[in-house]
Design a protein around this nucleic acid. Structure first.
Lengths: 349, 349
DNA sequence: CTGAAAGCGCTTACAG
DNA sequence: CTGAAAGCGCTTACAG
């Protein structure tokens, strides 16, 4: 807690006294009321500047029983995807006159609980929650209560929370990526990365399977490779693709980190994405456009998702109560060199 | 502003009434005072839980004239370096019982002004400011005033602000990188990237010159290549290194983005970093460890810098007034393959 | 058009 | 050990 009373804060009372009006009048000037005479207004405004008055929004909010903050709880700020998302949220909230209370949880449900508790004490008008892995919807709902609207982003909560949800279209994204590889002539396509029990992994696998099924292909068990969604784990997992002949000629990856790891793992085996193996990612992180080779991926535009999340939660803040809404954000395929293949047609089929 | 009064907020008064004590007693229980009888405490705590009471820290802070928030103003949250920094700040602030008010400026001094104004109204105990390019120290100081301690991070403000400053050790970093190349046998070493008038570029060039000077080398003018600190511009600038014979055999780059661009530019000319040319970067962005080849660079550990920034600003918040402090964060050389060279000794000397 | 008064949710001397 | 009262900085009916 701040001590440092050093120099006393300038308040409405100081300003009122300084130009011989009541606090009420100064307050009306601050809030731009048309009730105040132009001359009075000018005098007050001069005095506000002269004394260097700073509005105390906390006090005003307390009196008015409103809040102009929104809590943003992020599972992994060091992931560029969520950092961009946070930037978009903050941008849109600022435009709407709200301030962002940040909390990062580092994927720990314990820290999430602590962070939420602390942020709730600051009376946020709403909460944007990108949940830590393994978050329990019922527990979170009990903690937050019914007074504060929550928008869940990206990851479905286990159990029921009754909150709005902004999801990426995981199914459509993985389907697009798989269809793209099928169009390039690939028939043996792996799906690499993610944890089977995470909702986003399940959905992406579902899109992958759907695209294969539409092409009359049933995936071989060894085409489904599970691993943590990190570069390092993915690079290690590449070996699993080549244990049996015929091996896959392409891989749909859970996300860009996995795809980059897969490309590195391929290189260690003398293979090259975009040349003798095709790879796609998911997210379109900044790095995807400049990797070697550049990565074909599913672009989700995290900054726009952030803006969208801000708008959705503010609608709830201002709007009427209604049934929870499930919004699916658009995605698009970004084609780059990693899915090029220079194999002779025979080699692929 | 939030409307949505829906369900009334539970206050101290409700809890006090609910268990037949005064508000003062409930307040004492909340703050863990030893004055309250154990039985009373138990009764009050049960009632707090029963009613689902949520502490209103804003009201408490108003009354106590303290603040438990710190404003974090970031120039570019979509840069992983700053995102990591923000994560570190938030982590350390949360541990210290503070909440982070986030503002991102997107490198716009106008937005920075607006963002700061809005955050100041929330009475932050301190401010951590990673300034937008071209920020004017005097203007910022006038806006913030003397009541709120500010820690400036990463980029010196033009003019004088009288604020604490946490800087990366640019001079030492560039010196380390240059010495590393000298040890590898290189004598003709370029410095690529950055704008001459930016303070960080000046400092990095200074470290580069110092290392060369200590080895008895005066850099040729054409070894100093200026360009925007982006991958694309750096790739374009590579040609300038080879206009005259003998050309440099190595380059110290302004940052990792430049270094990655230089490596791409070299590849376009049939040269290869780590094989027939040595390259170093600065920052150790996540990509540096997985580029082809992996990049030798100066690691600055942005998350630790964030923690450090949080500690510095909290010291100011709690501590006595004192002269502004200039802290230089440690850096370290991270050696990877991009600075390997397989040239025969003759080719280098 | 302006001012006196009450009150937002909390804390903290001060009595008892 | 507990309660009544004042006050943090603001806003908003309500009189005038």
């Amino acid at each position: 807690m701040s001590l440092r009373p050093a120099t006393r804060r300038i308040t409405l009372t100081d300003v009122a006294r300084g130009c011989g009006v009541s606090r009420a009048t100064v307050s009306l000037v601050l809030r731009g009321s048309p009730l105040v005479h132009a001359d009075t207004r000018a005098r007050v405004e001069a005095e506000l500047r002269r004394q260097g008055y700073v509005y105390h929004r906390g006090a005003a909010n307390l009196r008015r029983k409103v809040s102009n903050s929104v809590a943003l709880v992020i599972n992994d700020l060091s992931n560029p995807f969520f950092a961009e998302f946070a930037a978009g949220v903050d941008e849109a909230l600022a435009e709407a006159g709200y301030v962002t209370l940040l909390g990062s949880t580092g994927e720990s449900t314990e820290r999430q609980r602590a962070v939420l508790g602390s942020l709730l004490e600051h009376d946020p008008a709403g909460i944007i929650l990108s949940p830590a892995e393994g978050s329990d919807g019922a527990q979170l709902h009990a903690q937050v209560g019914a007074r504060t609207p929550v928008l869940v982003f990206n990851r479905a909560l286990s159990g029921e929370s009754g909150w709005d949800f902004l999801a990426l279209d995981n199914v459509a994204g993985a389907r697009l990526a798989t269809e793209h590889l099928l169009e390039r002539g690939h028939r043996r396509i792996a799906f690499v990365g993610g944890h089977r029990d995470s909702s986003s992994c399940r959905q992406r696998r579902e899109g992958y399977r759907a695209a294969l099924a539409a092409a009359g292909i049933g995936p071989e068990p060894q085409w489904l490779v599970e691993c943590a969604p990190t570069r390092l784990e993915a690079a290690r997992a590449v070996g699993a693709l080549f244990v049996r002949d015929p091996a896959p000629t392409a891989a749909v990856c859970y996300n860009d980190a996995v795809a980059l790891g897969v490309m590195a793992g391929l290189a260690q085996r003398g293979r090259h994405a975009g040349v003798d193996f095709a790879v796609t990612g998911f997210d379109d992180i900044p790095e995807a456009s400049v990797s070697a080779p550049p990565l074909t991926t599913i672009a989700v535009d995290p900054r726009m998702r952030g803006r969208q999340a801000a708008e959705l939660v503010l609608q709830r803040v201002h709007g009427p109560d209604a049934a929870p809404r499930h919004t699916v954000a658009p995605i698009r395929l970004q084609v780059r060199a990693s899915s090029d293949t220079a194999l002779p047609p025979g080699a692929i089929a």
